[in-house]
Design a protein around this nucleic acid. Structure first.
Length: 639
DNA sequence: TTAGGGTTAG
């Protein structure tokens, strides 16, 4: 019957229309093998059988057969099979045309064999823009930015003109230090070759500017695009979010939505990053509902964003619920959850979850995992456990070499435990040059544990490395004040005036019914400012009766004591806290967010508020959460 | 035949 059919029908049509098993029997027994035959087998999903025919039966192959097989190997990421196809070409002395060699580059790229891909390119007698671009893309996708850029330069030198594919690809490798300079030059070339308004090139270009922190240039490119799509809109929104310009990101998202932008899971992940920064829980929930309605929750990236958003908004149990319900987790899912526990000072949970991660053994911890674990131990008051992890890491137990940031965590760990001298010795022995962040961490420890001797050394070192950072002057001055060295306090202040150091303006906010109420120090712009000021004054009187003493050491201005107290009462977090007390019913927890590290006086103020008013105060500063209940803070007064 | 945006980080 089969043979009969073959008389009337094209053999390949017959094979294509039959079941896999039937087709296999048919092709291996009934017909002489040829390239079209292979095509049919591949379309039936029988790659192996096609290869058997090719190799065992010594089939003479031509372009079409090789191309079919290779395509199948690319689609399936079948590394071994693809290698056999390539080997067959060499063995039979077949010289593949440019088209096929380019496909080989793509195949090796898909199988993460960049050396093989490069070899194919090197052996090409003639290359065109497509083969160059395929190889540039291979490097940039695997994170080899300098190789990608070098290859692009080689391509230009060879006289090959880049096209829109090349520009869109090469710009993704321009985010590094020297990449950006080259990126600007590439931008000139793009203008010259009139590819600037191409949507793929444009979104790659604006992303390059955004990643270099040049958001105005990025916006300029975006505004000039003749058309927009979901990728270009997401690129500009995430550009703002990644730079911490959260309100701008949110505003643009709303604007583009009104203009009819479509969103996908990447857009929502970027918006959630902005909402995490703002700690806007109500808005975050709204996005979550939207994601659920659009049936997008199966995207791991989106779930990771949700874990992060809920934890940064203070709602860790939601984060954990999402984490537990995930069918698959990446290392970022684990890291986001660990960072969540760490920022909330829950050291025991960090250790427990890390143990679970190791027991499950599905995902390998990376360097961020260890940062989260070490800082979790530090914030959670588990110094010894943290040190154990670090030394195990340093001995190569986990296959991850400790980096500068991990050393920074250890300085933090030792400093918190009051082991200031040990932390100092540790820094001296480090294989890295200590950065301002490391010295800053030690200076903080010196302030908390009143170690003026080391603190003075570290402070001056820090003022030398980072003279523009006002925070260092503040801590050093606090340290002198705690030791009663008023003359030195004055000197630090004078130095600050001399260097014309500008303090980053403090800003605190509170979210009520999806609206963010923001307060700046001595700000008069809020519609209920009179009420808020009156409330702060009332609080000051009540708290003083209960034992609150304003910490005047927190004020750097050289003014009299009464003025200093006024300055302290004008701090933004006190206004936000007072507004929270006025605007929410009694007994409801108040959640305040601050852009900088909270000052000692405001921390103490919040502790008294929680005790006197019976309110739970959750305060998120630049570094971590402070959960204040009944006058006690989860940070143990060290932050 | 080649292409752009994304999640964690003391």
């Amino acid at each position: 019957m089969i043979r009969k059919l073959s008389l009337f029908y094209d053999a390949n049509q017959v094979i294509s229309s039959m079941s896999n098993q039937f087709a296999r029997q048919l092709s291996l027994t009934s017909f002489p093998p040829n390239s079209q035959n292979l095509n049919s087998l591949c379309s039936n999903g029988q790659l192996r059988e096609a290869l058997v025919e090719m190799a065992v039966q010594g089939l003479e192959m031509k372009f079409e057969g090789y191309y079919t097989l290779l395509n199948e190997c690319v689609n399936r990421r079948a590394f071994r099979e693809g290698q056999r196809v390539h080997a067959h070409m060499t063995k039979t002395c077949y010289l593949p045309p440019m088209h096929l060699r380019t496909r080989l580059i793509v195949f090796y790229n898909n199988c993460e064999c960049l050396n093989d891909a490069q070899r194919v390119l090197d052996e090409m007698p003639v290359r065109n823009v497509v083969s160059w671009t395929a190889m540039i893309s291979a490097y940039s996708k695997r994170g080899y930015a300098s190789e990608a850029l070098n290859l692009f330069l080689q391509m230009l030198r060879s006289g090959t003109e880049p096209n829109e594919f090349t520009f869109a690809t090469v710009l993704t490798s321009c985010s590094g230090a020297w990449g950006f300079d080259l990126g600007r030059q590439i931008h000139s070339l793009i203008i010259k070759t009139k590819f600037e308004s191409h949507i793929f090139v444009g979104s790659s270009l604006l992303d390059m500017y955004a990643k270099a922190g040049r958001i105005y240039e990025a916006r300029g490119v975006f505004d000039c695009l003749p058309e927009r799509d979901v990728v270009s809109c997401t690129a500009i929104i995430s550009g703002y979010a990644q730079l911490g310009l959260d309100e701008e990101a949110l505003e643009l998202f709303r604007l583009l939505q009104r203009e009819g932008m479509t969103s996908n899971y990447v857009t929502y992940a970027s918006v959630l990053t902005a909402l995490s920064g703002l700690a806007a829980l109500d808005l975050g929930r709204q996005v979550h509902n939207h994601v659920l309605r659009r049936e997008l929750p199966s995207y791991v990236v989106l779930q990771n964003s949700l874990i992060d958003m809920y934890s940064k908004c203070g709602n860790l149990s939601y984060s954990r619920r999402i984490f537990d319900s995930m069918p698959e987790r990446t290392v970022i899912s684990w890291n986001a959850m660990l960072v969540g526990y760490s920022k909330h000072g829950m050291g025991k949970e960090v250790v427990k979850l890390f143990k679970l991660m190791k027991e499950e053994n599905k995902v390998r911890p990376d360097s961020v995992t260890f940062l989260a674990v070490l800082s979790g131990c530090s914030h959670g008051g588990m110094e010894d456990r943290g040190l154990e992890y670090f030394y195990a890491m340093a001995e190569g137990e986990n296959g991850i070499e400790p980096e500068l940031e991990h050393y920074g965590c250890v300085v933090d760990l030792l400093g918190r435990a009051g082991r200031v001298e040990e932390a100092f010795e540790f820094i001296k022995k480090m294989r890295f040059e200590p950065t301002a962040a490391i010295w800053g961490s030690l200076l903080g420890a010196c302030r908390v544990h009143s170690n003026v001797e080391i603190g003075e050394f570290v402070g001056f070192r820090l003022l030398h490395i980072e003279p523009e950072n006002a925070g260092n002057y503040v801590i050093l001055s606090n340290l002198y004040a705690s030791a009663g060295r008023w003359e030195d306090v004055r000197n630090v202040r004078e130095l600050m005036v001399e260097k014309a150091v500008i303090k980053e303006p403090g800003r605190s906010w509170i979210e009520l019914d999806q609206i963010l109420h923001t307060f700046h120090a001595s700000d008069r712009s809020h519609p209920r400012r009179e009420e808020v000021s009156a409330k702060v004054k009332e609080l000051s009187v009540k708290l003083k009766e209960a034992g609150y003493v304003p910490d005047l050491g927190c004020v750097l201005y050289d003014v009299d004591e009464e003025q200093k107290e006024k300055v302290l009462l004008g701090h933004s977090e006190k206004m936000a806290l007072a507004f929270g007390l006025i605007a929410t019913p009694e007994g409801v927890p108040v959640r305040v967010i601050k852009n900088l590290r909270i000052c000692v006086d405001c921390h103490n103020f919040a502790k008294f508020v929680s005790k006197i008013y019976g309110r739970e105060v959750s305060l998120r500063d630049k570094n971590r959460f402070h959960h204040i209940v009944g006058g006690t803070c989860s940070c143990g007064d060290y932050w």
